[in-house]
Write a protein that binds this DNA or RNA. Structure first.
Length: 498
RNA sequence: CGGGGCGUAGCGCAGUCUGGCUAGCGCGCUUGGUUUGGGACCAAGAGGUCGAGAGUUCGAAUCUCUCCGCCCCGACCA
């Protein structure tokens, strides 16, 4: 057998490795429709974990879920000029509402719609139209709503999870009486995303505002969390937008203030998508397949019975069930430990490798020898696949929360160390050119002072590098732009990106 | 949409240049047996409109044209 379960390896061919991991872990596959993916049960289970945690965080910050239509009247999208411009190129449009059987047996779209409907690429416009009706008084504010939905953006170059024509996401849309409140909301939700990414996905992120060119169409400010993938590229893992009064003015979202005057609302929107699954894959996985952080692993501990004879089978399975119950009664991250017995009738090696490739954090084997010695064999996904330790059975269940915590923490620290090792503080234009030279092992995050200026873009464009964000943590450290020499208050993060 | 590569069984591929027996191989799958603490072995079997359509030909996976899809690199994006 090859040395690794995944071929090619990361260093051999990173994009192909990514696709092979998705396939080996049985997360998703290509659909008959270009750019769309079928999310398979294991992939969807990971998404459900993410949804569950995020949804709890949204509720805890005062939001409610609702659902708005998939179809948006074309005229709605036309209302905000920048918004139109940003999304026009990638919209799926519904123009007919009936099919008729043609003479050659083919179905022909008929029943032309008076007004074409756009399949939502995002829902600012339709939600704004509803908010305009719902909001009359300052007493109606704030409106804090989230929706879990699918959206469609007709992308030119799709990649599973990272950029698909249709994807699943959540979009929060809020309306406030004051600018301050809306800005506060924007930053609060950015923090929610950053906490979720770091605590649950074990994925270190950099928070910060985007430059004008990278802003959401129609937003006043866009903030993102940026993560580094194992090829040194940046991935925008979540965004939070302060929309100012742009959409409110375009859509007449107004309210009567406390002194009776009519004012426009201040709105925000924020979202994360199934792209996060891609982010997790590219942050933690190795040449043996997927590696899942315990907090989002659908199964945290898989119990593998090992037996030959029927008597052994009975005894071993009994022990497995006892352990499964013990684990379910144990808690990690305020939830019962998710343990599962895999008693499928297949060869041990194949079964074990399946769980390796699917990223299950902990594998426990129980066989006759373990029963005799009162122990279990434990392997961790963050360690080499053949590194086994024997743990006294009585001890194992009580130690599992700590073990899962160690794995979770270890993954985060490993990812952070990787990112930091591939990050540098740069000062000059020559530094930038050198840092992003095509040589192997080069690239990553460059922290450098740059102005939001065409001269900077002109330097970065040929390098395929963009300003990812302007990190907002820590005090201002003024410096001079590496390109224009103009003073700027903070350094930016430059990187190639997905 | 531009440049490059590819499309043959579930997966990975050979065969295509130079048209010709019934389209092959490895893995996987099914059944039986031997095995079993880390990707087993033996045997038997199932599985293909060779991406689609049109054309050339006595004959097309193979030649010609058109189309479709996938991957990589650009332009665009969560």
């Amino acid at each position: 057998m090859p040395e690794h379960a995944i071929s090619p390896t990361r260093v051999q061919d990173y994009p192909e490795w990514y696709q092979q991991v998705v396939k080996a872990a049985d997360l998703a596959e290509q659909s008959p429709v270009r750019g769309c993916m079928v999310i398979k049960p294991h992939g969807y289970a990971v998404w459900e974990r993410m949804q569950g945690i995020l949804d709890g965080m949204f509720k805890a910050t005062g939001h409610q879920n609702a659902y708005f239509p998939l179809f948006i009247p074309l005229s709605y999208l036309e209302k905000e000029a920048e918004h139109v411009e940003g999304f026009a190129k990638e919209c799926a449009v519904v123009t007919h509402h009936r099919l008729e059987l043609g003479p050659d047996g083919r179905l022909i779209p008929t029943g032309k719609l008076e007004e074409p409907l756009v399949v939502r690429p995002t829902s600012e416009t339709i939600i704004g139209a509803m908010y305009a009706k719902w909001i009359q008084s300052w007493r109606d504010l704030p409106v804090l709503i989230n929706q879990w939905a699918n959206v469609v953006r007709w992308e030119m170059r799709p990649r599973v999870f990272l950029r698909t024509a249709e994807f699943l996401w959540q979009e929060g849309h809020t309306a406030h009486a004051t600018r301050e409140e809306a800005v506060e909301e924007t930053l609060r939700m950015l923090d929610v995303y950053a906490t979720f990414a770091e605590r649950d996905l074990a994925m270190p992120v950099i928070k910060g505002p985007k430059t004008a060119g990278e802003r959401f169409p129609g937003a006043v400010d866009t903030y993102s969390i940026e993560a580094m993938m194992q090829d040194g590229k940046a991935l925008q893992a979540g965004t939070s937008h302060f929309l100012g009064q742009n959409f409110a003015k375009a859509q007449e979202i107004k309210f009567a203030g406390q002194s009776g005057q009519e004012e426009y609302c201040w709105t925000t929107s924020w979202g994360v998508s199934t792209r996060l699954i891609g982010a997790v894959i590219m942050t933690h996985s190795d040449d043996d397949g997927l590696v899942l952080p315990p907090r989002i692993a659908p199964t945290q501990v898989v119990i593998l019975p090992i037996h030959r004879t029927d008597e052994e089978r009975t005894a071993v399975l009994d022990a497995c069930r006892v352990l499964e119950r013990e684990l379910a009664a144990t808690t990690y991250a305020h939830e019962p430990v998710r343990a599962k017995i895999d008693a499928r009738d297949m060869r041990g090696g194949d079964k074990v490798w399946q769980h390796v490739k699917q990223g299950v954090p902990v594998r426990v084997e129980i066989g006759p020898r373990d029963l005799a010695s009162g122990a279990v064999s434990v392997t961790r996904r963050d360690r080499p696949p053949k590194e086994r330790t024997s743990v006294p059975l009585a001890q194992f269940a009580t130690e599992v929360p700590q073990l899962l915590g160690e794995i979770q923490q270890g993954l985060f620290e490993k990812a952070r160390a990787f990112r930091d090792a591939k990050s540098a503080r740069l000062a000059t234009q020559a530094d930038i050119l050198d840092f992003f030279a095509e040589a192997a092992g080069k690239g990553g995050f460059a922290h450098v002072h740059v102005a939001d200026d065409p001269a900077v873009t002109a330097l970065l464009d040929p390098l395929k590098v963009t300003v990812r964000c302007i990190p907002m943590e820590g005090p201002d450290e003024p410096g001079n732009c590496a390109v224009t020499g103009r003073p700027v208050p903070r350094a930016s993060v430059l990187a190639r990106s997905y």
